[in-house]
């Protein structure tokens, strides 16, 4: 860990911090106003649907995916690590929280936090491996995909622990607000708001600056003393922890049931990718927008479950094709940029 402070001279550093503090104050409205407005609007939605259990389930799932999207945005949007294991990391959170709470009698709220730490360590490890072995996007993608599928097989195979194909019923949180019809929605909304604020604060911190620097030009960032390894792993740790917590919270809501496909690659990762392709990778509110749109579409397609897969396929193809001049270049420019034309 040899990150050199860009401003080694103490005086300008102090200046610069004061300036940063001032600009934070000045822009606090501009920064947090959109979050407040969005939170307010999302808070009103249940007024219309609170009588319908199934609608509330859909809305909660929407908030869950918004949380996934924000976390994925930190890992992929900020540092270009293609983690195709969003569902698996959330599932590690979900299953470990459920198992800790039910089998080890850990208080369920605490178990959610512990599950977040576990997921964070796992994701951080994946990130560390990827960075130290300097894997490029496709290899990070394959390794994390292999990890996802291993997790799925583990969940199915290790039935005595995970319930296998039948799934797992969580007992510990029975009788809590998480089991009610409407309140869990607000709990998840609160989680999303916390994540959004955290994301904003992160962007403003030295970590966010480092993310931006290595996104703009990794080589330059490295030369300027940004420890690229460290910040990539930070992103892995932070994002995975957020996924773990969101996944763990989901295990305790509603009827307290998690199944073998709750966190499956096909159910989670694909939707998160599509959501972000739609909402904009690396944007603050993109995941929320994507989550809302796809929750609605998902609900409309509910009666045609087989067609949902076709629909997601078409949307994936369409979005990534249509945005290849928009989303993909901005997306690939945040990945390692190698000069393709060094000759002259």
């Amino acid at each position: 860990m040899t990150a050199v402070d860009p401003a080694a001279d103490p005086e300008p550093a102090a200046d610069h911090r004061m300036a940063a503090a001032a600009s934070v104050k000045n822009s606090i409205l501009g920064d947090f106003l959109p979050i407040t407005i969005v939170a307010g609007l999302l808070g009103l939605i249940p007024l219309k649907f609170m009588d319908s259990r199934s609608m509330m389930t859909v809305l909660i799932s929407g908030m869950l995916f918004a949380a996934y999207g924000i976390a994925f945005n930190i890992i992929f949007g900020s540092t270009g690590q293609l983690f195709l294991c969003v569902g698996a990391l959330a599932g590690i959170g979900g299953f470990s929280s459920a198992i800790m709470a039910d089998r080890l009698s850990v208080p369920w709220v605490l178990s959610i936090l512990l599950a977040g730490i576990i997921a964070s360590l796992v994701g951080g490890l994946l990130s560390w491996i990827a960075v130290t072995r300097s894997l490029d996007t496709i290899f990070i993608g394959i390794v994390t995909l292999a990890f996802s599928l291993s997790f799925e097989n583990f969940v199915l195979g290790k039935g005595d622990l995970t319930g296998g194909e039948d799934g797992l019923r969580v007992a510990a949180s029975k009788g809590s607000i998480m089991r009610e019809q409407v309140k869990p929605y607000y709990v998840f909304l609160a989680l999303v708001v916390v994540y959004l604020i955290f994301y904003r604060l992160l962007q403003r911190s030295h970590i966010g600056w480092a993310f931006k620097a290595l996104k703009d030009d990794e080589v330059a960032a490295e030369l300027a003393g940004v420890d690229v390894t460290k910040y990539r792993v930070y992103a892995g740790l932070i994002g995975s922890g957020m996924l773990g917590i969101a996944g763990a919270m989901f295990a305790h809501q509603g009827r307290g049931f998690i199944g073998s496909t709750t966190y499956a690659f096909g159910a989670v990762d694909v939707r998160v990718l599509v959501m972000l392709a739609f909402g904009g990778i690396g944007s603050l509110l993109g995941p929320i927008l994507g989550a809302i749109v796809f929750t609605v579409l998902d609900e409309l397609l509910d009666s045609q479950a087989q067609l949902r897969e076709v629909f997601y396929g078409i949307v994936t193809v369409f979005l990534f094709l249509a945005f290849r001049r928009g989303a993909i270049p901005s997306l690939s420019s945040l990945l390692k940029k190698k000069p393709s034309s060094r000759s002259r």
């Binding site: 293609l82 490029d136 996007t137 496709i138 993608g141 694909v270 990718l273 392709a277 997601y312 396929g313 078409i314 949307v315 994936t316 193809v317 990534f320 094709l321 290849r324 993909i328 270049p329 997306l331 690939s332 990945l335 390692k336 940029k337 190698k338 393709s340």
Partner: peptide
């Protein structure tokens, strides 16, 4: 470069 790999992977995932 990586943009190509990423786009190819995602499109074929969709297909």
């Amino acid at each position: 470069g990586e943009g190509r790999t990423l786009l190819g992977l995602l499109l074929m995932l969709g297909v």
